[in-house]
Design a binder for these strands. Structure first.
Lengths: 122, 122
DNA sequence: TTGATAGTGAACCATCTGGTTGACTAATGC
DNA sequence: GCATTAGTCAACCAGATGGTTCACTATCAA
């Protein structure tokens, strides 16, 4: 049993890592999903409790959780009739490291406009 | 002329900021667009030179650049018959700051599996 | 002037996304 | 046993995405 769980987990990780950054960034690109992650940062939460604050059906929230789960950002565990969702921030680390490669360019945010104006202004 | 450019820039920024993180993360969620950004980190590049290494039409690359441009990650400037693309990493800073809120959780990547196995294993 | 180059726009296509509703399964509590 | 609660699944929908091809405009160079 334990071995099967580990193998399943490894297979899922392998498939996901093929384009892990794709699915991580895609999962983060929706306001509702970022809100779900923020909520889970406070601790494990049942799916139905997650759905509460949102103006959408529980089915829709369930789909969002599925997207987060496929991206490895959330783990879901069935206990009784409830599904408990837990934050798994590991994929965020890779995303953050990818972004940090561009840190040197963050200070230049107005350079492009300034240069364009210098060339074309008035 | 200068004033018009600045107003246009402000309007574009305002509209974009409405869901800036959405469009930033969405723009970053495609391998080809991340490759384009990596290329632009080496300096300004013509659109046709960007298209070279990709196994897709120039039209498709043009569409990717449009997505990056709409997200404010790239500025495009027409000079002669060429379009010069330049990296604008400013939106990445916001994305990175959002991610850094979860930095405290990055160390827990195997906790969930371990806990699950402890509860259900064998 | 003529031809090559850079790039967009329009039309089309398949697939994905984000949402709905309604029927269904499974666990819980009385 | 029976009603309630938690949640998924299937079907459906509108719109976005990612790609193509073809026609077109505009610039450059001989």
């Amino acid at each position: 049993m334990r071995r099967l769980l580990i193998v399943n987990h490894m297979v899922e990780c392998y498939v996901r890592r093929m384009n892990a950054l794709d699915s991580t960034f895609a999962a983060l690109s929706h306001e509702a999903r970022r809100a779900i992650l923020a909520r889970l940062a406070d601790g494990e939460t049942r799916l139905s409790d997650l759905a509460g604050p949102f103006a959408m059906s529980q089915t829709a929230v369930s789909k969002h959780v599925r997207v987060l789960s496929d991206a490895g950002l959330v783990t879901v565990e069935q206990r009784g009739r409830s599904r408990y969702c837990r934050l798994n921030a590991a994929p965020m680390k890779d995303a953050s490291e990818w972004l940090s490669d561009y840190e040197a360019f963050w200070g230049q945010q107005f350079d492009n406009l300034a240069r364009y104006l210098a060339d074309n202004g008035d």
